[in-house]
Each structure stands twice: as structure tokens, then as C-alpha cells.
């Protein structure tokens, strides 16, 4: 197995559906894979006190986030027999309905991919120094709180 190093997970703006499709297609050559699990985070048009969220602007402490993501990746590879794992998180403004997080795990059998994907998403939300600012139509905003 090749040595794993911290890699960039951040993309400017939304994650394009075509990029997600291409990512899936690229795995066709790896015929040891028997299952993929994919999580897609989408910006929800919440209504808060009568104001509608039109998008989320993401900022991050990028260096620290990439280091933390590297640790999460190492932990997950140590725990589950994965073939591969890919993570992409948006920075900047992502409009309602667009994709802001893409987590993609693959393994020979489904359970490892599914469990690893879930654990990865939970840890990203809890541990990565990333902040979302919910932007309202009225030129106003509030800072997002993760539940």
C-alpha cells in the first residue's frame, strides 16, 4: 500500500454533480471493489425567524483542518478494510440546493464502506475547524450551529 500524506480536501464553491459522477466512474478500473458508500451534504434552505437561508459561506483554518483530516483518514483506514476514501468540502459560498460535502468510501464488501463513510462524516462535522455562515436573502447572516 502506498504511503498516505495529507491531501487537500477543499474546493472553492459547490461540489459539482458532474465531478461526483466522474469520481464514481474512475473506480471502474478497480475491480477489487464490491461496494461504495457516498455521503453528499446539501445546503438546506432553512427558514429562521421568517428569514430564508439562500446559501452558506464556508471558511476554514485550512492548515489545521488538513492535518486533522489526515488523522481521521489514518484512523479510519486502520479501523476498516477500505480500498479508498475521498473527501471534498466546499469553501466560500455554496447556494441552497448545492453540494457542500462529498465523502466517498469503497471496499470489497459493503459494510466497511458504509460504516467508514458514516464515521468519517460525523468526525468531519465534529472535528474539522470549518465554519459555516448562513446567508439570508435580506443581506443578513447568522453563524451555523452543527447539531
Amino acid at each position: 500500500m502506498s504511503e498516505r500524506k495529507p491531501k487537500n480536501i477543499f474546493v472553492q464553491g459547490a461540489v459539482a454533480p458532474a465531478f461526483i459522477g466522474d469520481s464514481i466512474a474512475k473506480h471502474a478500473t478497480n475491480t477489487k471493489i464490491g461496494g461504495h458508500s457516498i455521503f453528499l451534504g446539501q445546503v438546506r434552505a432553512d427558514e429562521i425567524e421568517g428569514k430564508k437561508v439562500t446559501g452558506i459561506e464556508y471558511t476554514a483554518y485550512e492548515d489545521m483542518a488538513l492535518q486533522k483530516m489526515f488523522e481521521i483518514r489514518e484512523d479510519i483506514f486502520a479501523k476498516y478494510p477500505l480500498t479508498c476514501m475521498h473527501v471534498y468540502h466546499s469553501l466560500g459560498v455554496v447556494a441552497e440546493g448545492e453540494i457542500c460535502l462529498f465523502v466517498f468510501t469503497s471496499s470489497a464488501h459493503r459494510k466497511a464502506a458504509i460504516d467508514a463513510c458514516t464515521e468519517c462524516v460525523e468526525r468531519i462535522k465534529a472535528e474539522l475547524p470549518v465554519w459555516g455562515k448562513e446567508i439570508f436573502a435580506e443581506n443578513d447572516y447568522q453563524w451555523k450551529v452543527n447539531s
Binding site: V121, K125, A126, E127, L128, V130, W131, W143, N146
Partner: peptide
């Protein structure tokens, strides 16, 4: 030094 309020990524 970095001042980090509760995270809200994803």
C-alpha cells in the same frame, strides 16, 4: 495562535 469557536462544517 488561533481562536476557534464551535465548528460548523459539512
Amino acid at each position: 495562535i488561533a481562536l476557534l469557536p464551535p465548528f460548523s462544517g459539512g
